[in-house]
Amino acid sequence: MNYQELSKEVSYALRHAPSEYGLSLDENGWVDVQELLKALKENNKGASIELNDLISMIEASDKKRHEIVGDKIRALYGHTIPSPIKKEIGEPPEYLYHGTARRFVESIKEKGLLSQERQHVHLSVDEDTAYEVGKRRDEKPVILKIKAKLAFMNGVSFFKGNDKVWLSNSINSEYIEFH
C-alpha cells in the first residue's frame, strides 16, 4: 500500500472536502474511523483500506497530519472547510518560524501573517522545517522569525498542531523579524 497516497486522500477528505466523502466532522474535526473507511472504499471503487492501513499511514508519516484516538480519526491542521475546527490554546515556544515566498514579504510587512484560505497560519518550530515549507512556493524562500512567546503574552492565540507545527489565527507584523 502506498501510504503517502493514502495520506493525501485522507487529508483531502478530512481537511478540505468531507462532504464529498459523505462525512460530517464534529466541532473538533473528528469523524468515526469506520465512516472514513467506508467513504474511502466507496471513493476508491472497492479498494480495501483497513484500520491497520490508517495506523501504518500515521506511523509512516514524518509530518504527523492525523491522529486516531479510540474509534475516531482527525486531521491535526490544514483545514480549509468553512466551519471552524476548535483548537485548545497553548503557550508556544519563544520563537516560531514561517517560510514564505519572497513575493509575499512586502504584504506581510504591511498586514502581518494572515491565514488566507486556511483556518490558521502555520508556523514551524525550527528554521529547517520552515525552509522546506517555504520551498513549496519559492526556490529561495524567506524565513520569518516569529516572537511567539511575546505575541502570546500580548493576547495572540496559539494552538499546537503537532510536535513541529503551531497554528495561529494571524500574526501582526510587530511580532515578525524579517531577515
Rank of each mutant, 00 (worst) to 15 (best):
K149F: 14
K72D: 12
A148V: 06
K160P: 04
G46I: 08
K72L: 12
I108N: 09
P92G: 14
D71W: 09
F178A: 11
T80H: 02
Y97F: 15
L167Y: 09
L113V: 07
G70N: 14
K72F: 10
K149Y: 03
K87Q: 14
K86H: 11
S157D: 14
L6P: 10
A75Q: 00
D128I: 12
I89F: 03
F159H: 11
S124I: 04
D71K: 14
W30P: 03
V31N: 02
D126I: 11
A60C: 10
E110G: 01
D53Q: 12
W30K: 03
I49H: 12
N169Y: 10
F159A: 06
V69E: 04
E94C: 04
L6Y: 03
A17M: 01
Q119K: 13
H120I: 01
L76S: 05
W166K: 02
V69C: 02
S170T: 02
L150M: 04
A39N: 06
P92V: 05
V165N: 01
L51P: 00
P93L: 05
L54H: 05
P93D: 04
E35V: 10
K38M: 08
G155I: 12
A75S: 13
A47K: 14
A130M: 08
V125H: 06
L123C: 03
K109M: 12
L113A: 10
H66P: 02
D62S: 09
M153P: 03
L96F: 08
H66M: 11
H120E: 09
K87M: 15
N28S: 05
E94A: 14
F104E: 09
K64Q: 15
N28I: 05
L37D: 00
S157K: 10
K87V: 07
R74W: 01
K72P: 07
I146Q: 08
K147L: 11
G90L: 13
R136Q: 12
P82F: 08
A13F: 07
V10C: 01
Y77F: 15
T80Q: 11
L37G: 04
G134I: 00
E20I: 00
G46P: 11
S124C: 13
A13R: 05
A75Y: 00
L123F: 07
S19Q: 14
